[in-house]
Simulated assay, not measured.
Amino acid sequence: MKVALVHDWFSANGGSEKVVAQFIDMFDDIDVFALVDFFTEEDRFVILQGKRAHTTFIQKLPFAKSNYRSYLPLFPIAIEQFDFTGYDLVISSSSAIAKGVLTKVGQPHVCYCHTPMRYAWDFYHLYLEQNGLKGMGLKSYFVRRSLHNIRMWDYASSQRVDHFIANSNYIAKRIEKTYGRKAKVIYPPVATNTFKLVEKKEDFYLTVCRLVPYKKVEIIAEAFSVMPNKTLIIIGEGPELNRIKRFKGKNIQILGYQPQEKLNWYMENAKAFIFAAEEDFGIAPIEAQACGTPVIAFQSGGTLETVVDGVTGCFFDEQTPQSLVSAIDELESRYDS
């Protein structure tokens, strides 16, 4: 069987890329496609087994490596240029654009959907606010118009998919609300066997994620800025790095990218792992629990399916520093009791 695997883009090694790695392991004859492929050689080896993705014209546009998302209005026409003639099965790994590929009658298209496109649907108003686009200026109009067109295309392209798979019950509900489609839930793979259970913890808190707005790392940093006696370690890279750096201090360390061996050590030894996003599934909280590290998570999204309140962690009900501080106090009271 000849298989085509389509991913949105390859720029960082995150949770969705780990799903891609599993798909590549499953099939002997599989080719990979994406809007752009800017993987490091290390990530290419780990995720793509050394393969290079077939890419679109966006790969060669100016500044694409550092700012490919600015070409969002071109994404639909770019992804539709892939020709899958000769493939028996098309699999898309999609949180944005990959599911929009064109396939033929009798050519099954299965979409593993990590989330419907966030900034076109659920996070539309948040995206405008965080980018200073809530007003009615010319730039705001252009962005709103572009996102409206993307939203219309996104819904239309969802009807091209033959079978949807969701990574959580939470995402299955969003797929049904957004696209009017039913989805089978298959949780993503988590390599829990690569972590060690450590019972005696160090005295620091940890968060690990891509530093993008919806991860809400700024909330975590702000909470610890008013708790100078507690140490926070932030691991990750992304466009929000400079915003987060303003909180850097004696008790807040920003380590950026860390190799897997060091990352595992921090996961295994942290007093608790903090997760402030309304996440689709959330692989990092699973990894933390595999180490015996309790999770303090925002009470929404996929973590409600994986964190057991009062057993493997606790929740906070608002994405505010104050709510997080209260949850940390609650967890520490359990430590002391």
Score class of each variant (00 low, 15 high):
F316R: 11
M1K: 11
G135Q: 02
A12H: 14
G86A: 00
D29W: 01
R151P: 11
F82R: 01
V185S: 08
F38P: 09
N264W: 08
L304T: 12
N169D: 14
D203W: 04
P108M: 02
G15Q: 12
N169P: 09
K182E: 08
C314Q: 06
G14W: 03
L102C: 06
E129F: 13
V20T: 01
E261Y: 01
F23L: 05
I175N: 12
D154A: 05
P239V: 11
N67E: 12
H7Q: 15
I244K: 08
K139M: 09
F316W: 07
V90R: 01
R174F: 06
M136D: 10
I165V: 11
K271A: 08
A4H: 01
K216G: 11
N67Q: 13
I79M: 12
R69M: 14
P239L: 09
Q22E: 13
A290H: 10
K2P: 03
M227P: 02
H148W: 14
D88P: 04
E199V: 15
Q260T: 08
R210K: 09
T85L: 02
S140L: 06
S326W: 04
F298N: 10
V208D: 07
M26Q: 00
G301Y: 04
Y155G: 13
Q260E: 13
K184E: 15
K104E: 01
F195Q: 08
S157L: 07
G132F: 02
T306E: 04
K201H: 03
R44N: 01
T207K: 01
T207N: 06
F142H: 06
H148N: 15
A270R: 04
I220T: 00
G310K: 11
T231L: 10
E261H: 04
A277Q: 00
F224S: 07
I286H: 11
G180V: 09
K248S: 11
A98G: 10
